[in-house]
Simulated scan of single mutants.
Amino acid sequence: MAVLLYYPLVKPPAEVLHQALLYWDGIATVVPRAPEVYEAAVSPELKDLRDRSLYTPLRFGAESMDVLDDPDFGSVFHGSRTSQVLREELRRLAAGPDRPRVPAPPDAFLYVSKLCSWLEHELLVLGLAERSGHRFRTLAVPSEVQQLIIGVLARELAADGPVPYVPYTDHPDAYALSLRPSREQRLTAYQADLGAFLPVPAPGTPTVDVLAFRDRYVDERHRLMRALHRLLGDLRRDYEHPADVLAELRREIDESVRDYRAAAKSSRTAWVERSVTVTVGLTAAAAEVVQPGLGWVLAPLGGIALNVATREIRPLSRARDSHDFSYLHRVRQTLT
């Protein structure tokens, strides 16, 4: 499986953390480079999970973006196509009629030690940031600017990191900014809500209980995620026939959902379903075949209706034939 890469904040909400522990190989977030800021920004719970190899703090610095304590991660950002695109997007924001401004009081910040030197300079010159009086060096920025920058970094890490990362956010604006249409490059994507397939323990459940469930039901968890990611991957490859893809995988998904629900029920824990939208980017060839704006209700899978729709997207980072998945977590929930 892959590691869930949460953005735009350092500390994910409890339900996102629990979902990462249940359905992925762990969680990662982008953290400040300065050690003293890192110590303050990363919670004791995340540090404990890091000691268990279930949390990965990611950073980028003056010349590169890298994994803490991993000198082999390499440079994937400075001087790349992504840095050029980010410059262009920031200048477009600064020159636009609806130029975002830092509110008073500020509602979004960026740790300076998260930023490359050129990016800090660019934000200040464009008037998209102000130095704050925080004891740790931070820039006050409009929330749109914060979400744009961290969203781009998350997507770049997911594409070029040493392990498979899955971009995941609970901020709809950050999600939209990283998948925004542009006249430069447009791709077609499928979108589906997998939230009903991926329940999490109800609010207030201790993380230690989630870890116990994770360890006890390894096979059931892995089987469910393999089936769902196979579905998403097959939709990418056989984009002209989504109903056929579903029919082929129906038995595998039905059985994995049934087994996972049985495991969840035996845990005697209240479970919650939250909306989780996944965007499955397709290749450029699919854009000429699959019509954006079409939708299907493909049901039932494990007794759950799966809605699949198409839309146009353009990742802010460079377009790739091997486009990754991106997830949007929403707060809507129903108790099970």
Rank of each mutant, 00 (worst) to 15 (best):
A243I: 09
P206D: 02
G204N: 02
E248Q: 12
T205Y: 08
T188L: 05
G204R: 04
E240H: 06
A202S: 12
P201Y: 03
A192W: 08
G233V: 00
H241F: 09
L246S: 13
R221F: 11
T207K: 03
R250F: 00
R186C: 00
L231P: 01
R251L: 13
R216H: 14
L246F: 14
L224G: 05
H222T: 14
Q191E: 14
D238H: 15
R237P: 00
S182A: 10
R230G: 01
L232R: 00
R186I: 04
Y217T: 07
H241I: 03
E240T: 12
P201N: 04
L235V: 05
L198E: 11
P206R: 04
L187D: 02
R216C: 08
R221G: 12
R214Q: 15
D244L: 12
A196N: 12
L198S: 10
A196L: 15
D234P: 00
D238A: 09
L246V: 09
R226K: 12
E220V: 14
P203N: 04
V208P: 00
A192K: 06
P242K: 05
Q185D: 02
P199E: 06
A227S: 15
H229A: 00
R221Q: 14
Q185S: 02
L187I: 04
V210Y: 06
R223M: 13
R223W: 05
R216F: 11
D209G: 02
A247S: 11
G195W: 03
